[in-house]
Design a protein around this nucleic acid. Sequence first.
DNA 1: TTGTACGCGTTATCAC
DNA 2: GTGATAACGCGTACAA
Lengths: 356, 356
Amino acid sequence: MYIGLPLKVTLKLTRAKVKSKITLKDIARELEVSISTVSKALKNSEEISRDTKEKIQAFAKLYNYRPNNIAISLKNKRTKNIGVVIPDIVHHFFTTVIRGIEKYANARGYNVIVCSSDESFDREVINMEMLANGSIDGFIMSLSSETQLKNDYNHLKEVTDQGIPVVLFDRITNEVECDKVIIDDLLGAYTATKKMIDQGRKKIGLITTADYLSVSKARTDGYQKALTEHGLEVDESRILKLSSMEMDEELIQDFFENSDIDALLTVNEIFAVYSMRLAQKKGMRIPEDMSFIGFTDGFLSQYAYPSLTVVAQHGIRMGEVAAQMLIEKVESEAEVETYQTKILEPTLVVRDSTIN
Amino acid sequence: MYIGLPLKVTLKLTRAKVKSKITLKDIARELEVSISTVSKALKNSEEISRDTKEKIQAFAKLYNYRPNNIAISLKNKRTKNIGVVIPDIVHHFFTTVIRGIEKYANARGYNVIVCSSDESFDREVINMEMLANGSIDGFIMSLSSETQLKNDYNHLKEVTDQGIPVVLFDRITNEVECDKVIIDDLLGAYTATKKMIDQGRKKIGLITTADYLSVSKARTDGYQKALTEHGLEVDESRILKLSSMEMDEELIQDFFENSDIDALLTVNEIFAVYSMRLAQKKGMRIPEDMSFIGFTDGFLSQYAYPSLTVVAQHGIRMGEVAAQMLIEKVESEAEVETYQTKILEPTLVVRDSTIN
DNA sequence: TTGTACGCGTTATCAC
DNA sequence: GTGATAACGCGTACAA
């Protein structure tokens, strides 16, 4: 009936039969053997005769047989999936961490399921519940700002109570017992501040966020520690605390107009780069008249003009470490409940926004 | 025996029993009813008596019963997972698309599994095979540069042959029959080039990549079309073709030194921002002496100094559209094999790197 | 050497 | 109104 129609159509009809992957059962039926024989043959079991094995393996190869992950997951109670929940996916540092996680996890046969909480408590809860019902073997996550603000970690506790391992990174809390990876944010800010002090700056400003964000708190502490240790007083008028990591151009402009500073540390790269622009507009020279240091070694810092000195957070490394810790927990039979917090060292990447 | 030990320890022992989620079977055993009764009761079936239902529902709630996703996936042959394969995760445009996909997909109860191919053909193949064996209901993907270079799409064809729906976005190919979403790259480049022509620029340069990358090809075509239509000749010495989207500072410096241009279009934002820096170092004023336009409306463009005029690619919208097309295919019973390519309109976001 | 039976957790159908 | 059974796809202990 289809004679004369273009080849394409004929092929499609043939394909229709093949559609939806071939299973052990299909092979067994076709070759008139039992399912278990097929299963064993495909695993090259010694139990099966060479003839049968070859026949089955050839057939399987021909039809491109692949075991169904879902069935295996159900059987093994192991999904080989890692759930990653982060506050924001359009964010250099977090994607860098994901890259590290993927690198380590993929090499060990794990998939990475990424969900962004979008800085929302509710979305964080929903995403975790979704994934916790069997979809993943463990979580790697960084808390949303709303979660840190509410200080409510019941969703995390429920998950750990079910025996699902969790590794927290960057934005963490002491309220939950689990493995953690962070950089030494205090040290990072301390080093950066000290760098500027060493260059002779005496009026160092800080743009940070409210203290509920764990990382900002630590960075603010580091900044203050450096000042104090070097005999400089902490002047609140030189500190701007924004309510979140969101850019607020007006507040920064205001701050910049009204505070008397000759150097500026910020808790991310955007605040710093934006501030540099304000300085330039006022005709200041960077770094001669004013120094800038930010956090996060992203594209913005590299390609800003002048390029920005930053505290690098080594996201890839952090992701690898987190993945390693998680997979270790997932694959360990032992029920030992011992948790560790790994603290990575930040690095100061010196560029043109500070005097060399 | 544990009397006197801190509460925490006692709790942990209790938890040990609760560990690993409760199943229908557990409830059935505990309440001395059959599994099917439990299943029906929890779905509020009319078949079950009020008393039994209440008892079971209360028990389930108390022990926080949640159906196991994996078991349901196996039964329904639906995972409610979408596989996303992109060339690079540390990339503003792609993460923006992911955000759009997540937004649409999550609202419909789908998870997003993200894998990055890292611009590698092999990793793209491996990731797809991994996911195709039952882990996902469909793919949304953008081709790696290596794939476009090799022009080998058998892994995609295998997947579609199995009846797994695929939606390609941004970096697409005509070799595979499936749904596609792109922006009109040619139009975007055309509009940008025309903008500079209208401002009186006559020596407009272009930094692009080799033609195998579908988007670069289209953008190069748009640039040339604009020139030709406005009576300007296409001067090859004003075009720099890099081998990939990777930054190559040396080649760009070279190009910048040796070519006679008064305006520059680039196929991403990094090339443009870096070039602006070179111009500034040469003492040129932007946009008075030279205009710049890039592709991708990211942080770099927004916070560069001067801020960069760009062709916005509307990643979020693209992600939403892709997710919508995919989910429609996934959920449609019909076997209709009709594919569409949606073309989104790019927008020129005018900033300070061009004369207003 | 091959096959049978069972279990992973769930749902749908059918029997009682 | 409740329960037994089969099925989704796979692996494996055990039986033949």
